[in-house]
């Protein structure tokens, strides 16, 4: 089997950082697979998967100032959340609806991420709303810097807002209005479009008449770049450049990751009704984890034994997380009444 090569690594990416990125990808994949398994066992009601998106998402987590810069994610961002510091226990508790679940106290379904301590803003299921919040977060960054409320060079403060959106949702007005704000106000933000080619069942050609979402960006005075979303090194480079532009006050960037949703849209979907088995199998050859592992082994940063060990550790961590989540209590019913008003 021919594994597609990756781009050159960024010079400042250390060996340790590369291996950590690989570990995060594997941890997210094993966790995601477990979610599918426990759904099929009838233990949870719903799962929406990030399988196939790991290179894009982990690159993004590592390209920004993790835990400090604002992130307004969408529901498919599991690997990014793991990269930013959320844990398998956090995620599994959300799937089971257990007390103490960090994103929402189990008020929301799983994958509606939020983590105030990591500056991850709560997301809804109403697609594209989050990118407009990111415009507001980026506006606030700019406002605080210009009004002297923060030092623009203070790296303990958020200096950009990263937001994620699927290509289907770029047809929503929220996306277009946010792109317009990004252009007019030169907002320090990154619009990361994860183009997995399907909005549930609707292929990208039926969603828009241009080949790339990035083609829409120049109409707003925003640079748009297209990147191989299954190449973590290429994604990292593009997102790092976008982050630097934001930090330097040059405005926002749209980065379009061309990737593939290797699973159905969600646990309630059956993708056999709208795409071929062959197509899915072909994309499995381009699995972003496979490609990165191959690159790491070629670069002698990883051995097969190391890879096996990393897999084993991830599996053990997911096992332990599942046990902890399943044993955790449910929230009391009265928790339904809380937090209506601040």
């Amino acid at each position: 089997m021919m594994v597609q090569p990756l781009e050159k690594r960024e010079e400042h990416l250390t060996d340790a950082a590369l291996l950590e990125m690989y570990r995060v990808m594997v941890r997210s994949r094993r966790l995601d697979e477990r979610a599918w398994a426990i759904h099929r066992q009838g233990r949870i009601a719903f799962h929406v998967s990030a399988i196939g998106h790991e290179a894009t998402q982990v690159a993004a987590a590592f390209a920004i100032h993790r835990g400090v810069d604002y992130v307004a994610p969408y529901y498919r961002d599991l690997a990014m959340m793991i990269g930013l510091g959320m844990t398998p226990v956090d995620f599994l508790k959300s799937l089971f609806g257990k007390a103490g679940e960090v994103s929402s106290g189990a008020r929301q379904m799983g994958s509606h991420f939020s983590n105030k301590a990591l500056n991850i803003v709560s997301t809804s299921a109403a697609v594209a709303t989050q990118v407009a919040h990111a415009a507001g977060l980026a506006f606030a960054i700019q406002y605080k810097q210009r009004c002297g409320l923060v030092d623009p060079h203070d790296e303990t403060q958020p200096r950009l807002a990263l937001t994620c959106i699927g290509e289907g949702s770029t047809n929503q007005g929220d996306f277009h209005e946010s792109m317009n704000w990004m252009g007019v106000f030169k907002l320090p933000m990154i619009m990361l479009v994860q183009n997995n080619q399907y909005a549930i069942s609707i292929r990208v050609e039926k969603q828009m008449a241009v080949p790339n979402v990035a083609d829409r960006a120049p109409a707003f005075g925003v640079p748009g770049v297209v990147v191989d979303g299954n190449d973590i090194l290429a994604m990292y480079r593009a997102l790092r450049q976008a982050a630097q532009r934001a930090y330097d006050g040059e405005g926002g960037t749209l980065v379009e990751a061309k990737t593939y949703r290797m699973t159905p849209h969600s646990s309630d979907d059956d993708d056999r009704t709208y795409r071929s088995h062959d197509e899915v199998e072909q994309w499995k050859q381009k699995d972003p984890i496979l490609r990165f592992r191959h690159w790491l082994i070629n670069e002698t940063l990883l051995t097969d034994a190391d890879a096996e060990q990393i897999d084993h550790e991830a599996q053990a961590e997911v096992d332990a997380a599942q046990a902890e989540a399943e044993e955790a209590p449910y929230p009391p019913a009265e928790a339904a009444l809380g937090d209506v008003y601040a």
Binding site: Y70, A72, V121, T129, A132, H133, A134, A135, G136, L137, A138, F139, A140, I141, Y143, K144, R146, C147, P158, A161, G173, D174, E177, S178, N180, W181, V184
Partner: peptide
């Protein structure tokens, strides 16, 4: 910077407000 003429688009007047409020 503090009295901001927005594009003619009500969704983002509110949504940018939400995002900025989230940033305190």
């Amino acid at each position: 910077q503090r009295i901001v003429d927005s594009p003619l688009a009500e969704l983002s007047i509110v949504a940018v407000g939400i995002g900025s409020a989230l940033a305190d």
